[in-house]
Design a protein around this nucleic acid. Structure first.
Lengths: 166, 166
DNA sequence: ATTTATGCAAATCCTTTGCAAATCT
DNA sequence: AGATTTGCAAAGGATTTGCATAAAT
């Protein structure tokens, strides 16, 4: 597994697994086989995913390294606490995406094909700071999702209309 | 119940109930006692709420006009379809807020006291349009939540630290 | 050796559904 | 009258938990 972390503001000299190990140790938790399997899988792809998909992926691996459902849930939540993953809710589904080693970004969400497109805009952060200042609010983060139709889906608008998606 | 809708871009000459009645009629649905009770309650307060809270509020009304749980859920979802309410997810809880008659806005969410503060910024919409254009994306809406600590809670920071909230 | 983690089954929470009875138009 | 809606109880789906066993330090 290779990692190309050229962006971001945290120390990215460690692989996700190493960073997770640090986190676990700092909390007196253990580096288990299952946690390793999960981190490996999660950081071998950059797509967003939900708990079920991860479970499927683990089961369908050549080396069928399956992990139980409760352990997947438990580990995902640890990965969020560790700052390796970020959780968000997309049409009532909890999805996860890489946080560690990737720069802050926001999303365009296609309501037809469910595609998530990342973008980053310094202006969003500026607005966030300006608004926070105005309200004496201590901002620690934000989430911006722009929803609508992606290029592909708006091209096939007539098809979409037929399907009542517009 | 009085309504003071001075902002917003839709026709706000109708009360929420009237607007809902229009919606129902346009779909061949009926104006029932329960739907009226729910709309009255929902639009008598501007705070955000979840299904459970609404159910409680209905039960505790002087004129105990209680409505069953399934009906509350069914009606909430109709109100969203009708454009009267907007649904969002806040720490894994579905909350609703008024949409009809109120201008587009975004939120500051205090992670300690769970307070939601509304704000509006034209710049957010500008960014949304610029980003959409760049990605050939047909934006229909967006949601921006800035999270952190509100003024009250960051004032009592030491207390928060004691509670492991920072 | 001791403590933490796992997997199983069962529990929980929130939301939805089937259906007979009640309510609208 | 005829169609839709309601409330009940039960089903569903996602996530969590208790507990005995397995694994890590």
């Amino acid at each position: 597994m290779s990692h190309d972390f050229s962006l971001g503001t945290v120390d990215v000299s460690l692989t996700p697994l190493q960073r997770f190990e640090e986190f676990l140790q700092s909390r007196g938790k253990r580096v288990t086989q299952q946690r390793r399997i999960i981190v490996d899988r999660v950081f071998s792809h950059h797509e967003h995913f939900d708990a079920d998909q991860l479970l499927e992926q683990l089961k369908s691996q050549v080396s069928d390294q399956s992990v139980s459902r409760p352990t997947v849930y438990r580990t995902l939540s640890e990965l969020v606490d560790a700052g390796l993953l970020r959780k968000m809710v997309l049409n009532d589904r909890s999805v996860y995406e890489h946080d560690y080693g990737y720069p802050q970004h926001d999303h365009l969400h296609c309501e037809k094909c469910d595609k998530l497109i990342e973008f980053s805009s310094d202006e969003v952060k500026e607005i966030r700071e300006a608004v926070a200042r105005k309200h004496h609010f201590r901002a620690v983060g934000h989430r911006l999702i722009i929803y609508g139709l992606c290029a592909d889906c708006s091209r096939t608008k007539r098809a979409a209309r037929r399907l009542d998606l517009i």
